[in-house]
Design a protein around this nucleic acid. Sequence first.
DNA 1: TGTACATCAGTGAACGCGCGTTCACTGATGTAC
DNA 2: TGTACATCAGTGAACGCGCGTTCACTGATGTAC
Lengths: 171, 171
Amino acid sequence: MRRSREDTAETRREIVAAASRLFRKNGIAATSIADVMGELGMTVGGFYRHFADKDQLVAEAIEQASEASTKTITSEAALVRAYLSKEHCDHPERGCPVAALCSEIGHEGKGPRRAFTDAVRAMVAALEPRDKKTRLADLATAVGAVVIARAVDDAKLRDEILAAARAAIDD
Amino acid sequence: MRRSREDTAETRREIVAAASRLFRKNGIAATSIADVMGELGMTVGGFYRHFADKDQLVAEAIEQASEASTKTITSEAALVRAYLSKEHCDHPERGCPVAALCSEIGHEGKGPRRAFTDAVRAMVAALEPRDKKTRLADLATAVGAVVIARAVDDAKLRDEILAAARAAIDD
DNA sequence: TGTACATCAGTGAACGCGCGTTCACTGATGTAC
DNA sequence: TGTACATCAGTGAACGCGCGTTCACTGATGTAC
């Protein structure tokens, strides 16, 4: 059953949004096309009316997540307050795609890696007023802290890492 | 054909060593038991004479990698020289398991996560002379920088990130 | 020390399962007159 | 504006494939006498 142009465009947006959430929450490899389409109450076949393959979806999902996430990083102060928060650690599905996908992206194709690199550049640019070396180091500290905090199975160690990173970026 | 006790123990060690390399290089999910056994010229069936399941292998592979990797981090100076090097970025298979597996470990079982957490603690302990907050922040910076440097598809950006992290840790 | 037997490390085929992708089909939407 | 037809978004079953794990089997090693 054919859909209207608006419905079609809306479906495409919803696929990217669902994929963006699921990839950040569960990982790219661990998220199937069926999982993504299931989020919209749809079946797998329809996916290929919108995308050539999974790689294309991964790239667009990273772009979309990057746009939304970069808006929240307007300064070093925001990096300390919002990025290095328990809230951000607890909700990767609506957080930074760089922190969520960093060690998995190396196993993906060219498209996804390009999108990831652009996301890193956008974060560096978002911290603009500071000199570039400081911005890059702060980015490494913030991403490293969130990724390790999420990976570790001890809440006390997690809080210590986040606090240490906050203190380091604040100078 | 039954093997001698020494051969059996040697096979077990080789399985862990091969897994440790492959997991760090290609990721845990992307490495199959058959891949690991293939490295030793063996078939899959034999694996289960040594391990209950893949989770157990993952945990032991992380422990082994952690022991070897932590030995190289004897000071902040070593973190700057060896850890934040192009060499370490180019060879995840013989590098730090925390940097190699950080964003993938959240999707693994309890055993692997426990081993990963122990690896983080070992790294923090290895930087001993400094106060804990500095050690934790330096760890976040070093891990974040290596992970992002590896993920990015632009060699110039990679080198800038490593250099910025080196400068930040050196004070 | 020599022999008979039990053990068990490793083989290779098979298991059920979920993956990405394809495809014939359906029927509402969009288009041409 | 109304009608006839072409288009194509979405369905759901099927494809080949690789996964983790199991299992009957083989034959050298380890053990008991």
